[in-house]
């Protein structure tokens, strides 16, 4: 039995009368891609927020590498090995592609108090940033301003910034959002290769990508986990199909 990298235990969060997360317990194991799916309003984003530190749960725990991080700040969780990508690209649009990656490398270095050195000449940062850009295929775009990138390239840069952190776990919030078929395929291949580096908790609407990538799937409806298991089981589950497709349709 392997120790999960990331685990939530009975997470609960409500906003007034609305229960956004209801006793959610999921885990992320080494080497896997664990997809979380569910109709709109199922509480996926709220769950991600609680895992990454943006929202504090009313109840329950978030465990990262066996440590309780439930009350840790977003920064502390990032330092402990959590890398998150955003559903809507959160990149410094005025900065160059390389600078965005450098920012990740700077965070990973843990030493932002450098006032004299040129950021682009700091070898430790640059190597890390370029390796990450190379991995997602953006190395030749380094000098371009982020605002000039295509939507697909921004999605790739999101992943690259996460990569610079050399994380223990990736949390990806709809990385395929807004991508066409080709872009989606390209990013799917990229994520497929990442699972050896660190497991991925993947929240995604694109079912082709989910079925192509996921080792396990958890289905969230109205804040509750209604099923979790290997892809084949979920695909075969009548209850899931009814709940998920029924509500989505």
């Amino acid at each position: 039995m392997f120790e999960p990298v990331l685990e939530t235990r009975n997470l609960c969060k409500s906003f007034g009368a609305l229960t956004a997360t209801d006793q959610v317990s999921i885990d992320l194991r080494p080497g896997e891609i664990h997809a979380v799916i569910g109709p709109n309003g199922a509480g996926k984003s709220t769950l991600i927020q609680q895992i990454c530190g943006g929202l504090r749960p009313d109840n329950g725990q978030v465990m990262l590498l066996g440590k309780d991080v439930t009350s840790a700040s977003t920064q502390a969780r990032a330092k402990a090995g959590l890398a998150r990508t955003f559903q809507i690209s959160a990149l410094a649009m005025e900065d160059s592609v390389l600078e965005n990656a450098l920012l990740g490398a700077l965070g990973a270095s843990g030493r932002p108090w450098r006032f004299w050195q040129r950021a682009s000449a700091a070898v430790d940062l640059r190597d890390r940033a370029e390796a990450a850009l190379d991995r997602v295929g953006l190395l030749d775009q380094g000098d371009k301003r982020c605002a000039e990138l295509s939507h697909g390239q921004r999605r790739q840069l999101e992943v690259a910034v996460a990569l610079t952190l050399a994380p223990r776990a990736f949390i990806m919030d709809e990385p395929m959002a807004g991508l066409g078929a080709a872009g989606s395929k390209q990013l799917t291949d990229l994520l497929d290769g990442l699972r050896g580096q660190a497991p991925i908790l993947l929240v995604e609407h694109d079912m082709d990508a989910v079925f192509a990538l996921a080792d396990r799937i958890t289905v969230l409806v109205s804040g509750k986990v209604i099923a979790t298991g290997p892809v084949e089981d979920i695909r075969a589950s009548g209850a899931v199909r009814e709940a998920y497709l029924g509500e989505a349709a």
Binding site: C52, T74, A78, F86, L103, L106, G107, P112, V161, L165
Partner: peptide
């Protein structure tokens, strides 16, 4: 939000 997510 990005700055926080990279641990700063």
């Amino acid at each position: 939000a990005r700055v926080e997510t990279v641990g700063l």
